[in-house]
Design a protein around this nucleic acid. Structure first.
Lengths: 165, 165
DNA sequence: GTTTGCGTTCGAGCGCGCTCGAAGCCCTAG
DNA sequence: CTAGGGCTTCGAGCGCGCTCGAACGCAAAC
């Protein structure tokens, strides 16, 4: 699935466009597969989202994209990197509003780094909470599956296989 | 519904968790403490959803609720148990449509148990995928956080110093 | 008797995140 | 020369899951 690809990429390139030290990390990672510039169709394909959605993100102010002589979008490496980041954040549940705020902070300059860090910390906690919720639900569903069609009596089997991942 | 009995047992096994968002459900897992019948306000309170939402679920055909002499809803233990199940499934991302289908199968009789089991298996896999997605995103965010305070410039600060979350 | 308060029904509205359609431009292939 | 395909902009529409408001009923409290 493309999302796993995406995630791998995100892990490798999860960087911010404005941090030199992180830029160094980028170079260490496999960003070589990303061309200098890409069309909207190519970016859509690699991110596994639609061109419509890419235009929507641009309209929403999440990313700036240059145009070529024909007025067609030209995504440079920076834009693609940002979109990888944005897609990952969306996928993990960060609202558009927050992402808009985040990129406005990025664009505002280096002095907003602390606030951006706060946002990331908060989002990290949100993801952790969500994972715990889902793990709990998963356990419940697995238990229900394990006992389905079996005995409906009080001596149900313990959810031995219920802690799998 | 025997299956819901099992569900509540499954929930009991999770009682040691302390997730705030499902705290209300945990309270309910001790079915001994659940009254014979409850008002809409009581059910809303214990499930941590609004009376509006409860009426909406009923309108959607997810649960049948009797009325008292004044036309007020009276939730019996069976209705509450089903709502616990439904709430958990919603929380773990099962769409309303699927729940409507599931409930229709339950109402259709015991011979639909296999199909219900299939739905549960599929939902289990969906939850697992989602957890994996989130875990990957979490790793990415944690990595970004870890690299944020490194050398972000003159006013760099150690990560965690601004834990406002 | 009147007020307070919780309940009822019904349908409409909302916030989110896309998703799509229309009209038009540009390039290339046949 | 024409047809096709992919891009552009813009605004409207959609699917989901609630969320709310209006108008009303009943019952206990003051």
């Amino acid at each position: 699935m493309a999302t796993d690809d995406l995630m791998t990429r995100a892990l490798e390139t999860l960087a911010e466009d404005d941090l030199p030290s992180v830029e160094a990390i980028h170079r260490l990672t496999d960003l070589a597969g990303v061309p200098e510039s890409m069309t909207i169709a190519e970016v859509a394909d690699v991110l596994d989202i639609s061109p419509h959605t890419l235009r929507y993100y641009e309209r929403a102010g999440l990313v700036e994209v240059a145009r070529d002589g024909n007025g067609h979008r030209v995504y440079d490496a920076g834009a693609v990197r940002r979109l990888v980041f944005l897609t990952r954040m969306r996928l993990s549940g960060m609202p558009m509003r927050d992402l808009q705020h985040y990129v406005s902070l990025v664009d505002a300059g280096e002095h907003t780094a602390p606030e951006r860090l706060d946002m990331l910390l908060e989002h990290r906690d949100t993801i952790r909470r969500r994972i715990r919720e889902l793990t709990l639900s998963l356990t419940a569903v697995e238990f229900k599956i394990a006992t389905y069609g079996g005995s409906t009596g009080p001596d149900a089997r313990p959810p031995g296989a219920a802690t799998g991942a």
